[in-house]
Simulated assay, not measured.
Amino acid sequence: MHAIEAQQLTLTYGENSIYENLDIAIPKGKITVFIGSNGCGKSTLLRSLARLLKPTNGSILLDGQAIAKLPTKEIAKRLSILPQGPVAPEGLTVLQLVKQGRYPYQSWLQQWSAEDEEMVSKALKATNMQQYADRTVDSLSGGQRQRAWIAMTLAQGTETILLDEPTTYLDMSHQVEVLDLLFELNVSQQRSIVMVLHDINLACRYAHHIVAIHDKKIAIQGTPEDIITEDTIRTVFNMDCQIIQDPLFGTPLCIPFGKGRKVNEQEQASSNLANAAMVV
């Protein structure tokens, strides 16, 4: 069974068609990353999978069930979404933010419980945010703030987590910090994680499954090793590049040529020599 499936999905914005008759299946227990050029609809597709956008036609299945027919609180217990650049109210502490993840479990009959307390504690520990619990969210660094929001989604206790560009506005070290955290959550807890990322090389490094979006459709999808090729990058991003093997992780590594600077023969020879050395 897949974590999420879209069947014959049609999405429109006003009179503009975004996707028509799109089929996609998100592997369960894996990390899936959406890539594509700006404005191609990656975030729109992610939001539709979380039922935040109503499709014009088609259906979305969550664990094999039609998401349109599920109660909102039931969905929130099985799927969580972290939008791009979330903003917390001024003065809200990390602990208060993380507690918001337990909202789907609250009702007039069921108030805050020992289980809620345990889930919040586990989420803070998993994200290494215990020492910041009493700090206000707006006083944290970018990486810490993102980990606080991820802790909130973990406290929600869902098997599937959707994240829209979780590394946006973060420097390189904090990008790796956040992605390492998500990778560890996938390994240790078998969470199904779906992300939108702009960095192709980070997508290749952390994803089990990549979905490349182009021209209102799925251009290609599969493992990074199978689909990230020079032809794919040229088709999806209209960019020439060279694909080599990441010397540390063995995943595809995209080296863009750029349009303003050409590679001369000496640089190309050095590149070929380096590639040969890595293969050896």
Score class of each variant (00 low, 15 high):
R205W: 08
S121F: 05
L45Q: 03
L181T: 12
S113E: 00
T153V: 01
N238P: 00
A50S: 13
V176M: 04
G91R: 09
L185Q: 15
S192Y: 12
L9R: 00
M278N: 07
G258N: 07
G85S: 14
D171W: 02
G250P: 01
E5I: 07
L197Q: 00
I75R: 06
K77P: 00
T153F: 10
K42V: 01
L45W: 11
H208W: 06
E5K: 08
G29R: 03
P166Q: 07
I213Q: 03
I31M: 15
L154S: 04
D246I: 12
A6S: 14
D63A: 09
I228C: 06
E118Y: 11
I243W: 14
Q65E: 13
D240T: 01
T44Q: 05
S43W: 10
L162D: 02
A148I: 04
V33H: 05
F257R: 14
I200G: 07
T232N: 11
Q96T: 08
M278W: 14
L70H: 07
V280I: 05
D231Y: 08
G143I: 11
T93N: 04
C204F: 10
A25D: 08
S59P: 01
E159F: 02
T153D: 04
S59C: 05
S80V: 02
D231R: 09
L49Y: 09
S59E: 13
K217Q: 15
E20Y: 06
E15T: 12
T160G: 04
M129R: 05
S173R: 09
T136G: 00
I218A: 11
V263Y: 13
V176P: 00
G41A: 11
A155Q: 14
E265G: 06
L181C: 05
T44E: 05
R135V: 04
L9Y: 09
Q96P: 06
P256D: 06
I255V: 13
Q130S: 11
D134T: 01
E90I: 14
V98P: 11
H209F: 09
I4S: 07
Y105M: 01
V137H: 05
Q268V: 12
S17D: 03
L79T: 04
M195V: 04
N21E: 10
M119K: 10
T251E: 09
A123S: 14
P166F: 08
V33M: 09
Q221F: 13
Q7D: 13
R191P: 01
L22D: 06
P104Y: 08
T229Y: 15
K42P: 11
N238H: 11
T32Q: 04
V176Y: 07
Q65A: 15
Q266F: 10
A219F: 13
T56Y: 14
N38Q: 09
N16W: 14
N272V: 02
K122D: 13
L79F: 04
I220L: 14
G142D: 00
K217P: 06
D226N: 12
Q156I: 06
R102N: 06
L154T: 01
I255T: 02
R47H: 15
K125F: 04
I193K: 07
D164G: 03
